[in-house]
Amino acid sequence: MKLISWNIDSLNAALTSDSARALLSRKVIDTLVAEDADIIAIQETKLSAKGPTKKHLQILADYFPDYEIAWRSSVEPARKGYAGTMFIYRNSLNPTITYPEIGAPSTMDCEGRIITLEFDNFFVTQVYTPNAGDGLKRLADRQGWDIQYAAYLAELDAKKPVLATGDYNVAHKEIDLANPASNRRSPGFTDEERQGFTELLAKGFTDTFRHIHGDIPNVYSWWAQRSKTSKINNSGWRIDYWLTSNRIADKITKSEMISSGDRQDHTPIKLEIDL
């Protein structure tokens, strides 16, 4: 089975805009089409509460014929057009789809952050983890989220093996970002967020990229848009992950980044596993 995950940073912009960035985004979509994955997880769709429009659905159907779509958007009292997730999966698959709420702080459960696909022998679940925010103003809520999300994954894992993916908004170890020393209190690399991810893995999950590649350095999944040279200089962060239950880690055959060319921000990540 081949699975891909990508934080798209606005589905509408990627599909309908004529900006230079949107054209780069569509090149990435072309790459995903060529990958011919079974399941694609998309984060930060930024769609309205009503979800994809007819135009969006038609464009997606043109790109991905013979696939079904499951989506979840931010709804009141959360911010409009914020966060959001989507699965694109082969119509030969027949998952049970859930949109869990995990008892998260603030409006986080209303922000469209988790979708789960249940199959006979495993789960596939994606997450768009809340950012701790400028000035770490949302760090305490983020810590609460991490606790509740880890408990949710453990609950799934108690039933059957789990494949979990998404933008986790944390670089787990120093090797996972280019400049750890200058980012000690930056959102995504605080001790608190890193400890939260450590505790998540301790509940029985494997970071598939490190499982396959060990301590290979300088491989990242995100480069800041605000810096014109971040990608040229490979000054990146690895904050997007495919995790699996420990007991199926031996079935992983590939876990890697998919090139997004000149486009900064997130690059797609791929998992191949023999289930």
Results as ranks from 00 to 15, higher is better:
residue 108 M to P: 11
residue 81 G to Y: 11
residue 149 Y to M: 11
residue 167 D to N: 07
residue 69 I to L: 06
residue 86 M to Q: 01
residue 118 E to C: 01
residue 142 R to H: 14
residue 112 G to E: 13
residue 163 L to S: 04
residue 92 S to L: 05
residue 156 L to K: 01
residue 141 D to L: 01
residue 69 I to W: 05
residue 117 L to N: 06
residue 123 F to Q: 04
residue 108 M to L: 15
residue 169 N to F: 05
residue 162 V to A: 10
residue 105 P to G: 09
residue 126 Q to M: 14
residue 70 A to E: 15
residue 150 A to L: 03
residue 86 M to R: 03
residue 116 T to C: 14
residue 72 R to Y: 09
residue 131 N to H: 11
residue 147 I to Y: 08
residue 108 M to F: 15
residue 106 S to G: 07
residue 131 N to K: 06
residue 86 M to P: 10
residue 85 T to G: 12
residue 143 Q to S: 14
residue 166 G to R: 00
residue 130 P to E: 08
residue 85 T to C: 14
residue 98 T to Q: 07
residue 148 Q to P: 10
residue 94 N to Q: 05
residue 83 A to Q: 03
residue 115 I to F: 06
residue 78 A to Q: 10
residue 163 L to I: 13
residue 96 T to M: 05
residue 153 L to S: 12
residue 80 K to I: 01
residue 131 N to T: 08
residue 120 D to Y: 11
residue 156 L to D: 09
residue 138 R to Q: 13
residue 125 T to S: 14
residue 77 P to I: 01
residue 123 F to N: 05
residue 159 K to P: 14
residue 76 E to A: 15
residue 96 T to S: 12
residue 82 Y to V: 07
residue 136 L to T: 00
residue 128 Y to C: 02
residue 144 G to L: 05
residue 169 N to Q: 09
residue 80 K to P: 11
residue 136 L to M: 04
residue 143 Q to W: 01
residue 158 A to R: 04
residue 85 T to E: 04
residue 139 L to G: 10
residue 162 V to F: 11
residue 164 A to F: 09
residue 69 I to R: 01
residue 145 W to M: 04
residue 137 K to H: 15
residue 151 A to K: 12
residue 168 Y to W: 10
residue 122 F to R: 00
residue 158 A to W: 02
residue 81 G to K: 03
residue 145 W to E: 10
residue 127 V to R: 00
residue 83 A to E: 00
residue 90 R to K: 11
residue 96 T to V: 12
residue 158 A to T: 02
residue 133 G to F: 08
residue 71 W to S: 14
residue 81 G to L: 00
residue 98 T to G: 11
residue 161 P to T: 09
residue 109 D to E: 03
residue 159 K to E: 15
residue 127 V to W: 05
residue 72 R to E: 15
residue 161 P to G: 13
residue 163 L to A: 14
residue 151 A to N: 12
residue 117 L to D: 11
residue 87 F to H: 02
residue 115 I to L: 01
residue 120 D to K: 11
residue 107 T to K: 07
residue 94 N to F: 00
residue 163 L to V: 03
residue 97 I to C: 09
residue 151 A to V: 07
residue 113 R to D: 05
residue 86 M to Y: 05
residue 78 A to W: 05
residue 130 P to H: 09
residue 146 D to R: 03
residue 170 V to R: 04
residue 152 Y to N: 04
residue 165 T to L: 11
residue 92 S to H: 09
residue 140 A to I: 00
residue 89 Y to I: 00
residue 140 A to K: 04
residue 169 N to E: 08
residue 103 G to N: 07
residue 153 L to Y: 05
residue 134 D to Q: 13
residue 95 P to G: 08
residue 110 C to E: 15
residue 151 A to D: 14
residue 147 I to A: 15
residue 152 Y to S: 06
residue 117 L to I: 02
residue 158 A to V: 00
residue 86 M to V: 06
residue 160 K to A: 02
residue 85 T to L: 04
residue 110 C to L: 10
residue 167 D to V: 07
residue 81 G to S: 11
residue 149 Y to G: 07
residue 150 A to H: 03
